[in-house]
Nucleic acid binder design. Sequence first.
DNA 1: CCAATGACTAATC
DNA 2: CGATTAGCCATTG
Length: 107
Amino acid sequence: MNTGLKFSSVILARLEEIPRGRVTTYGLLARAAGRAEAARAAGAAVGRNPDAPRVPCHRVIRSDGRLGGYSGQGGIKTKIRLLRREGLVIKGGRVENFKKFLYTFND
DNA sequence: CCAATGACTAATC
DNA sequence: CGATTAGCCATTG
């Protein structure tokens, strides 16, 4: 049941706890928000908050290591730059060894 | 309220 | 490994 907090709100709140140099997936994010199978909705929620200078939405990638998308300024290109800036290696549109940097949430 | 939509995912070919 | 298909969901018009 709902805690009173909207799904998208929880998504954004959870994003802020992702450490620098780490990434998470839309699926894990959705699970952290209370809906394990709402990965798609999670992506939609993050996508509606493009300008989030303080929200590290660029640290969210797909479950297979591919970048997914980015609605912020500069588009996907910016997402790549930001991730590389945190020490991650992007190649062929995906994060290499992303499982090593994968951040998992705790209930 | 119903139908469409999207920064998804896992399974199949 | 790339392309396709079907499933799942909150949000929007």
